[in-house]
Amino acid sequence: MEQYRNLVFSVCLRLTGDYFTAEDITQETFIAAYSNWDSFDGTSEKAWLCRIASNKCIDYKREAARRMIMTADDEMPEEATATDNEPLDTAVCNDLLSRLSDSCNKLSEPYKEAAVGYFIEGRTAKEISVRTGTELKTVQTRIYRAREMLKKLIRKEDLLG
């Protein structure tokens, strides 16, 4: 199953348009897959995983829409209904990742180092720990805090921009 983690994450990223939401849903997808392995019919693991992931993304978008303060129906732009269900194209996803990269560089040290190493360079916490000579637990904590900071930063930028 692990060979599909990049594919599942990419599908989630295209459907949600949010790096951290995609990460969460990818995790939930694999947890659901491991937990419900008995119900897998054995035909196509890739399609099965992507089905779980896409359904979870749609559920997330429905839930997010429910939480929004709804305006009157006649005030809603008609174009929105036509494009909401479409996955994002590659350019938009690349733009998301470049914004994530910019946000990582905006963080203060030592979170910047952890965030760049983890989110941009794709290093594991252990690799960062060995490279920087910092304790593994410390690196994990920095990554966790950097993630929370990035979530706030990116969502604030979305709200303003």
């Binding site: 983690r5 599942v8 990460e23 990818t26 995790q27 590659t90 996803c93 794709g122 594991t124």
Partner: peptide, 14 residues
């Protein structure tokens, strides 16, 4: 066209 790399420790977290 649009394969992105998942966070490195994703499966460990799972």
């Amino acid at each position: 066209n649009a394969m992105f790399t998942a966070p490195p420790d994703l499966m460990a977290d799972v």
